[in-house]
Design a protein around this nucleic acid. Structure first.
Lengths: 118, 118
DNA sequence: TAAATAGTTGAACAACTATTCAACTGTTTT
DNA sequence: AAAACAGTTGAATAGTTGTTCAACTATTTA
């Protein structure tokens, strides 16, 4: 950062620490993408959908029935999960069958669960 | 769930699957807490703060300076992180030094990073 | 004691988001 | 061909949330 204008309204107390942290700080864009990923996990409806799909492939109706929600709201959330490449789907007749696109997703899920369980 | 009223506006196609999933479905409250945890991770300011604190303990001014944001907004976010038991702090003189309350947090962080990096 | 500084806090505002509703597409059934 | 059903989509709405601003507390320094 070579900008002189700073929103930081204070005298820097530990310039050495700030510099050291800045040095080994991950890429800005990477942290942004990471936040975006967690944001998707940060909704109970989407968490429930992912949790359900980790057990078995399901169609929109099945998920709506399981979570006692409308097809529409489930479809909206599935679109978000699809855009984030967290779920994939196959169409068969009138139905669309959704499943997890990646096993790695559940590792993040499980790690989070461990922390919540304390 | 023993309620007959269902928001699910469709005939259930795979009652057997829905029942099976319902059976091995995690506790509702647990999934809610999990979503709340991920929600906290799902903001780039908070992610950056956690990432910084994983490198070194820092005071509010240091963080504000590092991220080029006001003390106020950092303090607000630190309050949220504190309430979620993700950070702890010690006061010394005029300053408040924040650090991660748990190493486990960074495991979730790293796992997410792996996924984002693809 | 007064000024300066680090940090906190509540209200206000703007931006975002999850659900609802209605209308729609596409497939299957009668 | 018409009805029924699974699913999608866009607009509207209500609720949430991150930052800003101003006022405040507490500690230190002059």
């Amino acid at each position: 950062m070579s900008t002189n204008e700073s929103r930081c309204d204070c005298n820097i107390i530990h310039q050495d620490i700030v510099n050291a942290v800045k040095k080994s700080f991950p890429d800005e864009l990477l942290l942004y993408d990471l936040a975006e990923l967690f944001k998707i996990f940060g909704d109970s409806t989407r968490i429930k959908i992912l949790s359900a799909l980790s057990i078995h492939e399901m169609c929109v109706c099945d998920i709506a029935c399981l979570l006692n929600m409308t097809k529409s709201s489930i479809s909206h959330q599935l679109r978000i999960l699809k855009q984030a490449n967290l779920v994939k789907y196959r169409k068969s007749g009138k139905s669309a069958y959704y499943s997890l696109s990646d096993d790695h997703i559940m590792q993040i899920f499980e790690q989070g669960l461990d922390h919540v369980k304390e």
